[in-house]
Amino acid sequence: MSTKLHIVSAVQLREGCWHRDGRAVTEWRQNESLAAWLSDQYRQLNMAYPKFFKMDSLCKLATLAVEVLVGDETPVNPQQTGILVFNRTSSIVSDCAHQELISDSVNPLPSPAVFVYTLPNIMLGEIAIRYRLSGENLCVISDVARPEEIFMHAELMAASGMTELILGWVDVIDQQARAWMLRVKKHDGETNNSQLSTQLIKDIDNIPTWTHSLKS
């Protein structure tokens, strides 16, 4: 495969704050829950995007990650920007919320706003809506991040005409969150960076899942 990719910037969630290219861009503050932490991070990033509050925690986490990654530098070719997200626990948080509502034996009353988030690929939709991205998008459910698999999907997308990719891993279960995100562009230079990228992915995926907790 001759497609060359290189990483423009990388975002990680580490110990409750966001890092971009190795530098912290938000700070961890004490919050009573993961939900409150998500709102706090949103405010720290001055996002002014009220739709954020309608999302489930998985989509909120993905939206924050992409906000840190992309910021004001919106992709120049929205039709050729692909979104590729890996995830292990699918939309478990909203799945459980929906299940609880319909299990009410007296008055089962599902909430449409909860049900729409019972699919993991809704995060791709939320990212696409926020940045008006209409390129290819794929959500892959995987136990662990396998660099070779991630890069294969990225290369296939690039080979099909995507010039830029937003690529990452986003998971939320209970009070645990895990996210990293890369901005990847097609590379015109002579060297093939996929070796380097594979290494970077390995490093990135070594970050531990962050569990929201109160400082004791």
Binding site: K54, N107, L109, S111, P112, A113, V116
Partner: peptide, 12 residues
């Protein structure tokens, strides 16, 4: 979706 949620609100 908000419209549907308002319908749920009326019922609940």
């Amino acid at each position: 979706i908000d419209a549907l949620e308002l319908i749920v609100l009326l019922e609940r």
